[in-house]
Each structure stands twice: as structure tokens, then as C-alpha cells.
């Protein structure tokens, strides 16, 4: 006959996942879905016309533009930095390799506010190089270049980190074979390394982009918060909120959220592609 323990084992096996899933679903609803819904609910609370007017407000439009511009400037630089750093670290031996690895992780481990303040202390009017720059009429702090600089600093590890893990796992034998077959450094990178890392590279770029667009702390220290000039979207959200313009703030926030959704969808597609290739 059947094993007397079987029914018990079966119910237990059936119930545990259900409980875990329920807990997960409730937590997700409470802490992730609800705040997102509130954003759109608040943004649209005075009707779609007010929402449209809020987004089309010149200052908000400028903030959207500045955020996009920051991504367009910072992302390529950090991709280039990430790829070269990861290539050097994983495919070659050199002195100071560990130091470089630690330096790459540094922006992850210090608070963005601290990063902003240290840039202020270097480039600001009272900072280390400030007077020298001021003599030459170069203004970095409280202007758009400052936003680029700190964003670059804060988001620099994303691409490199993503690639280093993968490239370490892949080893360097393929590159070594390519070298003995006569490939130059560039050919080695272009034909052998790059095809093997492209999905991870895109994935790293997507993560980096999300952080570039959302960065608040460091940017708020160095931007100077000049309306319509040096306000990125996250800063604009805060500004509108402090102006008691909640609908405006949430409208701007909804734009950021939509950008985040686009990023997430891209990431999901990339992950699936990478997974398909591996299996």
C-alpha cells in the first residue's frame, strides 16, 4: 500500500512554497508596487491636462533634457572606462593591479554626498584648485560640468564590475591563442574578447544608465540647484515638492519612473538573450 508518510510530505511540500510566495507577494505589494502606484495616482490627481502642463513646464522639460544629456555624456565615458579597466585587469599582469581593483570599487563604498563634497572641496571657489580655475575663468562647480563629473564618479564601477566577474570566469586562453595566431591587441579585443562579453557589457551599461539618471546626493551638492539651468530630474522633483507643488513633483517623478521601467525592460530582454546564448 502507500507510504503512510506520503500524504504528510505532500501537503508540507505543497504548502511551504505557497506561504513563501504569499509573503513575497505581500511585501512586494506593500513596499514596491504601492509607492509606484502612488506616484502615478498623485501625478494624475488633478486630471490629465494638469499632468501634461506639469511635464511641459519649461523647468521640468529642461530637467528632463539635462538628465538625458548627462546620460549621453557620462554613459559612453564610463563604458569606455569599464571595458578598458576590465580588459587590463583580467587579461594582463601588471604592477598595481590590486590597487586599481580597489580604486574601481571606491565609488561604491563611499556615500554620494561625500563624493559631492569632495568635488566641491577640489573644484569649488574655496577649494584646492578653485582659485586657479577661477583666474582662468573656468567655472566647474554649480554648473553642468560639475553634474557630469560627480555622476561619472559615482557610476564608474557599474560596467567594470559587471565585466570583471565575467571576464575572470572566461580566463585568457582564447586571447592567448589569438596572440599566437598573429592577432594584434585590437584584433584580439574586437574579434575574440568583445563578442564574448557583449551581453554583460550591455547589461552593465543599462545598470549604469539607471544610476546616472537617478543620482541625487552627489549632484545636489555640486549642481547649485539653479532652476532651468542645473537641475536634473531628481533635483527638480525635490524642488517642486518643497514648493508645495505635489502634483508637479509627482509628475516629474513619473517621468523618472517611466525611464526606470524602460531600463528594466531592456535589462530583462538582455538577460534573456544572455541566458539563451549560454544554454
Amino acid at each position: 500500500m502507500t507510504d503512510p508518510m506520503a500524504p504528510l510530505a505532500a501537503t508540507r511540500a505543497n504548502r511551504t512554497p505557497a506561504i513563501l510566495i504569499a509573503v513575497g507577494a505581500v511585501l512586494t505589494a506593500l513596499f514596491i508596487a504601492a509607492p509606484l502606484l502612488v506616484i502615478f495616482d498623485q501625478a494624475l490627481s488633478k486630471g490629465i491636462d494638469v499632468y501634461r502642463a506639469n511635464i511641459l513646464h519649461p523647468e521640468t522639460l529642461h530637467a528632463i533634457w539635462l538628465t538625458t544629456l548627462t546620460a549621453l555624456v557620462v554613459l559612453p565615458i564610463n563604458i569606455a572606462f569599464g571595458v578598458t579597466a576590465a580588459w587590463a585587469i583580467t587579461k594582463f599582469e601588471f604592477r598595481g593591479k590590486r590597487l586599481l581593483l580597489t580604486a574601481i570599487d571606491l565609488p561604491f563604498s563611499i556615500s554620494p554626498i561625500v563624493a559631492g563634497v569632495s568635488y566641491l572641496l577640489l573644484y569649488g571657489g574655496l577649494g584646492l584648485w578653485g582659485p586657479w580655475l577661477m583666474d582662468r575663468d573656468i567655472r566647474i562647480m554649480f554648473s553642468v560640468p560639475a553634474i557630469f563629473l560627480v555622476t561619472m564618479f559615482v557610476t564608474s564601477p557599474f560596467v567594470a564590475r559587471e565585466l570583471i566577474t565575467l571576464m575572470q570566469a572566461q580566463g585568457r586562453e582564447r586571447e592567448e591563442v589569438a596572440a599566437t595566431l598573429g592577432a594584434s591587441g585590437w584584433q584580439m579585443f574586437r574579434r575574440v574578447t568583445l563578442p564574448n562579453i557583449k551581453w554583460a557589457l550591455l547589461y552593465g551599461a543599462v545598470l549604469c544608465n539607471a544610476r546616472v539618471m537617478g543620482e541625487f546626493g552627489a549632484v545636489s551638492v555640486v549642481s547649485g540647484n539653479l532652476r532651468g539651468q542645473t537641475n536634473t530630474l531628481p533635483l527638480q522633483v525635490q524642488l517642486l515638492y518643497h514648493d508645495y507643488n505635489a502634483t508637479g513633483a509627482f509628475a516629474a517623478a513619473s517621468v523618472l519612473t517611466l525611464l526606470a521601467f524602460v531600463t528594466l525592460i531592456l535589462k530583462a530582454i538582455l538577460e534573456r538573450k544572455a541566458f539563451d546564448r549560454r544554454s
Binding site: E173, E176, V177, T180, G182, S184, P195
Partner: peptide, 20 residues
């Protein structure tokens, strides 16, 4: 001489083929 100029054929244990 760098490896590119030595005209050596190299074969590894785990093949190191270009998978793509």
C-alpha cells in the same frame, strides 16, 4: 619576439575555441 611573430601553434586542454 612577441607570440605573434613566433609562428607557434598552441593547443590548450580546454580547447579555448572561439565559441561565437
Amino acid at each position: 619576439q612577441p607570440p605573434q611573430l613566433r609562428k607557434v601553434g598552441l593547443v590548450f586542454q580546454h580547447y579555448a575555441l572561439f565559441e561565437h
